[in-house]
Design a protein around this nucleic acid. Structure first.
Lengths: 334, 334
DNA sequence: CTACACGCTTGGAGCGCTCCAACCAATAGA
DNA sequence: TCTATTGGTTGGAGCGCTCCAAGCGTGTAG
């Protein structure tokens, strides 16, 4: 288990420890002969530089901390993949932690991350109080993903929920729909922007917005649709539903089908988030996709700009989502 | 951004650096007066011990590396939560990495992890060649989750696919089913055990096993069912399907419903894995659940046993899955 | 033949921490 | 009174590495 050190490599290559360091850091002022000798010696010994020792000596960490509020949410898996790719390219390592959807846990997770003395920290949709974020930002650069902030020391990366909703509504309008209702997301952090975008798009086309209260779950979607069908006479019913998210849409679809309505022949449905199940053939849900990988990449980029001291003004990235047309939308019945 | 060091705390508390170290490591031989002084000084400065420096000095890492083959797979999110809880309790930190389902990426990710000189490494369902795993095991203790190994230096934690399949089949038998077919998982690593368990249970009850070739995807499930309905006369058709996994089951259900069969009145379906969508009200899939959290905890436990040198013989944990009865199973038609 | 610039190489200090041997009262035992 | 003993505290070495100043041999100009 005793792993070789730089000293071992130096001894084997017949050079000094400092030279090995230069080779490993791609210094140009090393003769090819020595460089080769060092490289083969390192290879033969299976030498692996010790990140921690390096960080300590160079006083510059190559570690980036990442805290995910909820690992189970597949949304973050994609964002993390984006983070990872960008970090790797820039020569940084990721240390990941999860907050298990609890402020207390998140606080502990964040402290853990900071004990690595990372170059920077990315917080994915944290439920942490703003004060804790501010405290962290005094220690190292901080980027928030899927959460806003008014702190000038903190950068943010979010999807433009207004634009995404506009896309969804305009897609429906272009198919010929005029009566489009929105199943609202209630208190969910992303709900306000989506509701706003929906209203905006409807009014821009001279249509009357109808916001039905609901939540971001399948049972809430089901309930909202039942209520709609029970209270609104057939002739006045919407021909399309724009749901707060995919789960809500899934519940809505269930209720609609159980009432004998065909989708999309009788009524169209659009979701939001492009979760993995929306792509299942049976579901084939038209939905709005957030550029998750891109969000991850941008987060790292913003972080590194701060790390390198290239920027002190806060970055506020608002990414453009895109529509994924699938089988749950079509022309309205005439 | 300059973070306080132990020296700073010592100066503020009016003691030596060594004493601060003793306090922070809960040494019993420190007077209460000094202990208190150090603690308040550390608190006032917002001091955070530097994990890396500590690791370097103590020659014992508190870092555990975790490599996930595929972060998008929600299965692992739960396992990781188990890992995290157990690690935290034992005073270890997790460094997480993902392999993005590619052997090359996994190799890079593993190297990355090892550059932290972790106390041990957990590999979640790696597609890495056995040689790479063996090499890693020469560096530090290694535990594999959802993958077997014949290496005596490596511990493994898996779900008992045979037992899980037996549970599924016996559930169907207890409902009165006699003609139960299995939609096979093909080359998937978990498929063999599930097939074996199915055969075992069927024979134990004097029934004839029928294995239909398929794969662990929804499209494959759909195809297999179509083929079944096309080629087998109605009277001889199975009254229940035990699918290789949840996605396969979902595809099977789609095809069955499209052919006008009601579930579970005309035919029952069981999946495997208890993925999040199987709990959606509309799907409500009867399935087999693996104790994921428990798997994570056991992995850490096995790792720490090796770290502490308490065990050198390989551990082979085979966890017992459980049945989650939902709406897709019922009595066969008479 | 000296000066001295240049390219390559090296020893040493030090990053923040742990751990050990040594130290220093203060008390106890002879 | 002198020597252990004990509980509390400290300086210093060193973990694996980086980085700096300095060293060394060679070539080129003065």
């Amino acid at each position: 288990m005793a792993r070789p050190t730089m000293e071992d490599v130096a001894a084997r290559a017949g050079v000094s420890r400092a030279l090995v360091s230069l080779v490993l850091n791609n210094s140009p002022k090393v003769s090819d002969r020595r460089r080769q000798a060092v490289l083969t010696a390192a290879d033969e010994l299976g030498y692996q530089p010790h990140v921690m020792a390096r960080a300590l000596a160079s006083r510059t960490s190559t570690v980036l901390g990442v805290m995910v509020s909820d690992l189970r949410n597949a949304f973050f898996a994609d964002v993390i993949e984006g983070l990872e790719g960008a970090a790797r390219e820039a020569g940084f390592e990721l240390v990941l932690n999860s907050g298990s959807r609890s402020p207390g846990r998140e606080k502990a997770a964040l402290r853990n991350l900071l004990s690595f003395h990372p170059a920077g920290v990315v917080l994915l949709s944290p439920v942490l109080p703003a004060s804790a974020i501010e405290a962290a930002a005094r220690t190292c650069p901080v980027v928030l993903v899927s959460r806003g902030s008014r702190l000038s020391t903190v950068d943010t990366v979010n999807d433009d929920g207004v634009a995404g909703s506009v896309l969804a509504v305009e897609h429906l309008i272009s198919l010929g729909h005029r009566r489009i209702a929105h199943l609202d997301g209630g208190t969910a952090t992303t709900a306000a922007a989506r509701r706003r975008g929906y209203r905006l798009a409807m009014k821009a086309h001279g249509l009357t917005p109808v916001v039905l209260p609901s939540e971001h779950t399948d049972t809430a979607g089901e309930k909202a649709v039942r209520h709609l069908l029970d209270t609104v006479p057939r002739a006045e019913r919407p021909t399309a539903l724009f749901c707060g998210n995919d789960f809500n849409a899934f519940g809505a679809i269930s209720a609609l089908e159980e009432e004998g309505l065909r989708i999309p022949e009788d009524i169209s449905v659009v979701g939001y988030d492009n979760t993995s199940f929306s792509a299942l053939r049976r579901v084939s849900l038209t939905t709005v996709d957030q550029p998750r990988l891109e969000m991850g990449r941008l987060a790292i980029e913003a972080l590194l700009e701060r790390v390198r001291g290239e920027r002190t003004a806060p970055a506020r990235h608002l990414l453009h989502p895109s529509l994924v047309p699938r089988g749950t939308t079509g022309a309205p019945p005439n």
